[in-house]
Computed example of a mutant assay.
Amino acid sequence: MSTHAEALIDVVRSLMRQRGIGVRELAGRMGQSPGNLGDKLKARRRWLYDDLWTLAEALDVSPVDLVRAVEHQRKSPVSA
């Protein structure tokens, strides 16, 4: 089982791959610098509560679906 932050990073990276967008594009959609978003995706900086809504909008998913995906990922066994 992973932490919520680790699960969020996994879900965001997966959605980015599915949509074919990189850090620069996602950061632009979120109104953040690529460095700031990159630090969050590397767990060097904490996600803010408001980031969930901004992420959901930028990735074209509902905040509820994003949180559900994070919770599902968090509870999934880690593959070795």
Rank of each mutant, 00 (worst) to 15 (best):
E25R: 05
S76L: 15
L15Q: 07
A7Y: 03
D65P: 02
I21P: 05
L55P: 06
V12C: 03
G20N: 12
V11F: 00
P77G: 10
L52S: 06
L48W: 03
S79W: 02
R44V: 10
A56I: 07
A27E: 11
V64G: 01
Q32K: 10
V67C: 00
R13S: 04
M30A: 06
S14V: 13
S76I: 12
N36R: 12
N36M: 14
K40S: 05
G35M: 15
A43F: 10
K42V: 06
L8W: 02
L15A: 07
P77N: 06
A56H: 01
R17I: 14
A5C: 15
S2D: 05
R19A: 07
V70Q: 00
P34T: 09
W47N: 02
D10L: 05
L8H: 01
K40H: 06
D50W: 04
T3I: 13
G22N: 12
L15T: 06
A69C: 07
L52D: 04
E6N: 02
A43Q: 14
G20V: 15
A27I: 14
R13C: 13
A80I: 07
Q73G: 04
R45G: 10
A58W: 01
A69W: 00
L37R: 01
D65F: 06
R46K: 12
A43G: 11
L26P: 07
K40W: 03
A5Y: 12
S76V: 14
D60A: 11
T54P: 01
G20C: 10
I9Y: 01
Q18A: 13
L8M: 12
S2T: 10
D50V: 11
N36K: 07
W53A: 06
D39T: 14
N36C: 11
K42M: 11
M16F: 03
V67Q: 00
D60V: 07
Q32A: 09
M30W: 09
G20S: 12
S2E: 11
A56R: 00
I21E: 03
Q32C: 10
V67G: 02
S33M: 06
V67W: 00
H72A: 14
V23N: 08
V23P: 01
G20L: 09
P63Y: 02
P63M: 04
R45E: 12
D10W: 02
Q32H: 10
R68M: 13
H4R: 14
R74I: 11
L66N: 04
S2F: 01
A43D: 13
A5W: 06
R74S: 09
A56C: 11
M1C: 06
T54G: 00
S33A: 15
D60F: 05
S2V: 13
L41W: 03
A7M: 08
E57T: 08
D51C: 08
L26Q: 09
S62W: 00
S33W: 07
V67Y: 00
R17G: 10
A56Q: 02
V78Q: 05
M30T: 08
Y49F: 03
R44I: 11
D65N: 10
A58V: 08
A5N: 14
I9C: 04
R24D: 14
S79V: 13
R19C: 08
R13F: 05
A27T: 13
A56W: 00
